[in-house]
């Protein structure tokens, strides 16, 4: 619970593939839709989701993912990742899921807060200029934990 007695969801996004961009955004949006606070912290590969140069090109790869049913020697062939990514975009569209950029804008307009991890920013040599407009700040892990005291934490 936050200070005003509302439930808060703290979501840490550490993966930068297309399929792993959605869980955090869907949860943040659902939280806001039902009146919960939502704060997202993007770290490590998750930074790609808020990096304006990389975000339009997030990919889904079936390599090393037994759930797709595709053997790795096939999944590793040239073009398979692009094809799988295209298919996933199509499926997401059929579900009326917005593309990642629009989704970030939507959850931010809905009142979710979006933060980039200070350490990852330094490690990848990024600046504020590299991020989409929705990013509310570059902060350290301690600061994020401070502002989400008492929250329900989800690590993706």
């Amino acid at each position: 619970m936050s200070e005003n007695g509302e439930r808060t969801l703290a979501i840490i996004c550490s993966k930068g593939t297309l399929d792993m961009a959605y869980p955090g955004l869907v949860l943040a949006n659902a939280a806001r839709m039902m009146g919960m606070e939502a704060k997202l912290f993007f770290t490590f590969w998750g930074m790609d989701i808020i990096n304006k140069h990389k975000q339009p090109h997030l990919k889904f790869t079936p390599i090393g993912n037994p759930s797709t049913g595709m053997p790795n020697f096939v999944a590793g062939l040239p073009g398979v990742t692009d094809m799988a990514t295209k298919m996933m975009h199509k499926q997401l569209e059929e579900l009326d899921m917005p593309p990642v950029g629009e989704f970030l804008e939507m959850v931010h307009d809905a009142g979710a807060e979006i933060y980039a991890c200070r350490m990852s920013v330094d490690m990848f040599k990024l600046t504020e200029e590299d991020f989409v407009d929705e990013v509310d700040g570059i902060i350290g892990a301690m600061e994020f934990l401070e502002m989400t005291e008492g929250a329900e934490v989800i690590f993706i």
Binding site: E6, R32, M33, M34, G35, M36, M106, D109, A110, G111
Partner: peptide, 14 residues
Amino acid sequence: TKELYQLFPKGPAK
């Protein structure tokens, strides 16, 4: 979206 959350604060979906 912004206006919808202002019109129906704290959980517009429900």
